[in-house]
Design a binder for these strands. Sequence first.
DNA 1: CAAGTACTTTAGAATAATTCCAAAGATGAA
DNA 2: TTCATCTTTGGAATTATTCTAAAGTACTTG
Lengths: 135, 135
Amino acid sequence: MTGTSPDYAAHLRDVGLRPTRQRVALARVLFGSGHRHVTAESLHAEVKATRIPVALATVYNTLNQFRDAGLLREVVVAPGRSYFDTNTGHHHHFFVEDDGELHDFPSDKVTIEGLPSPPKGTRLSRVDVVVRVRR
Amino acid sequence: MTGTSPDYAAHLRDVGLRPTRQRVALARVLFGSGHRHVTAESLHAEVKATRIPVALATVYNTLNQFRDAGLLREVVVAPGRSYFDTNTGHHHHFFVEDDGELHDFPSDKVTIEGLPSPPKGTRLSRVDVVVRVRR
DNA sequence: CAAGTACTTTAGAATAATTCCAAAGATGAA
DNA sequence: TTCATCTTTGGAATTATTCTAAAGTACTTG
Ligand SMILES: [Mn+2]
Ligand SMILES: [Mn+2]
Ligand SMILES: [Zn+2]
Ligand SMILES: [Zn+2]
């Protein structure tokens, strides 16, 4: 073992969320290993497998809260297909259309130049690049 | 008046679709004026306003068929928010997060360099750039 | 630590977008 | 015209997500 497990309760308090049993369990699964792309359903299944009771509605609530708190980023790639991404840094995605897989790629090698300025009255929020590929 | 109205029936036959009354009506609304971003609902409302009876299911069927035939492109920007775009040429989008508006911008001024090669076993299908902005 | 209050979770109902179904209708090849 | 094939349609079904109101938990304060 290389390190102690992070103090998720403290992290949650930091962003203004009470460290409830289910929020901590969700955080553990989400942030315990490398970066991940999950759906509400897939995350729900995973957490239930850890024997901690969580309702699907709670998973949705929590994912939305984590997103709003900046802990997660939401990526929409197809109708009815919304992923939550634990990688909140600058990066883009490959989306494999056949099976719905999502893969990160770093944005530091990618240059996007010549973007027009935002429509008047608006300010830039984020630039999403999705590279769609097929098998 | 500057020109005769396009022969939508012929266009439809060209892509292997029977020129039914509703498909022609939908094509007319979709392609009769400049480029558009429509939802199934909005298009349904528009066509019904022309006094041609169309079921919402038919609008969905037709939009999917037109998309598969390459007459339309589908743009997904938010969960539950799918637009069909009559502009199938190379271009990208501004998405105004507050109100869901979508605006085109040409891709010819934009340079995207340094994209990594697609994951093995896949070939490139399309690159979508969505610039999210806020009011 | 005991209370009390505010915040959370939850099951299930509700919504919204989209697809499916089987029957009725339209299209076009012969 | 005839007939097989393709389309349309209303309504039910599906899927993703949100809402509701009641029951449970976390923090503040005394
Ligand atoms: Mn899912
Ligand atoms: Mn819509
Ligand atoms: Zn990612
Ligand atoms: Zn467009």
